[in-house]
């Protein structure tokens, strides 16, 4: 029987092939038949999680809490040195120079990425903005958030910092970063579900050693990572507690 692997829909589009290559590598190394299923939207991912279809997942920190507490998932590894950060951007010509300048009914563009939205809304709190007094503009991806800003359809945009950094120079020239988060302790994690947990140690060993292997190192490059780093259970619990404090 094959197991199902998925990646949080906020993966960078140019890493899509990298995840397929990784899946092939992981199948060979673990001798498990692993099927990779990519979802474009969180709604579809959450439905699959609810139906217990997933066994392995590169999870957004927001989902990690639910996966551990409600679905019995355990952490395996995280990408070494990587953390999730968000930025608040405005049109370069905007007269907004400080978050504190923002007023209720500000038009805020964001994607359905839950942790980026959470970090972004926290950065808007100093202006007394919250989900109840903004005009939300839900966008399909981070490029469309940028486009809303360029067209003057949104006053501010919440963008994953990595996605912002990867926007074309042409787009970035027309935008300005108002705030960039420096949280450092929130990250995506590769997690293993209950059906596969008897192989947790094996998977952890394979992944932690991946950068030492020539082929493995190439696969990591395709994902934009330098190495995998083991996540201790307490580290994951700490991040879940953190997400809990932020989610209010």
């Amino acid at each position: 029987m094959s197991v199902m692997f998925t990646v949080s829909p906020d993966f960078a589009p140019d890493r899509l092939s990298g995840w397929y290559i990784f899946n092939t590598w992981l199948q060979k190394q673990s001798a498990e038949a692993i099927h990779l299923e990519m979802y474009n939207h969180y709604q579809d991912l959450h439905q699959a999680i609810a139906e217990d279809k997933i066994d392995l997942i590169y999870a957004n920190p927001f989902d990690a809490a639910m996966l551990v507490r409600e679905k019995g998932f355990l952490p395996l590894v995280r990408a070494k040195g990587e953390s999730d950060e968000a930025i608040i951007a405005v049109n370069a010509d905007s007269n907004i120079n400080d978050v504190a300048d923002l007023k209720p009914n500000t038009r805020v563009a964001f994607t359905d990425d839950p942790d980026v939205r959470l970090m972004g809304m926290i950065m808007l709190e100093p202006a007394d903005l919250h989900t109840g007094n903004i005009v939300p503009l839900l966008s399909d991806n981070h490029v469309l958030v940028a486009k809303h800003l360029l067209k003057g359809e949104a006053d501010v945009g919440i963008i994953l910092a990595e996605a912002y950094d990867n926007l074309s120079g042409m787009i970035k020239k027309q935008l300005r970063v108002l705030v960039r988060s420096q949280i450092s302790v929130i990250y995506h994690s590769l997690m293993i579900g209950p059906r596969l947990q008897n192989r947790r140690d094996d998977f952890q060993k394979i992944l932690v050693a991946m950068d030492k292997d020539e082929k493995g190192n190439g696969v990591l490059n395709a994902l934009g990572f330098s190495a995998w780093q083991k996540i201790e259970d307490e580290e994951m619990e700490f991040m879940i507690d953190l997400m809990d404090t932020l989610n209010t």
Partner: peptide, 28 residues
């Protein structure tokens, strides 16, 4: 600061507290 404090529950027992502080609004 705007502070949030939560109990760290491990195996049903409180083993400590986590406190996270973020930027407050001037009006608050």
């Amino acid at each position: 600061v705007k502070a949030t404090v939560i109990p760290n529950v491990r195996g049903g027992k409180v083993v400590g507290y986590t406190s996270v502080r973020r930027k407050p609004s001037r009006s608050k």
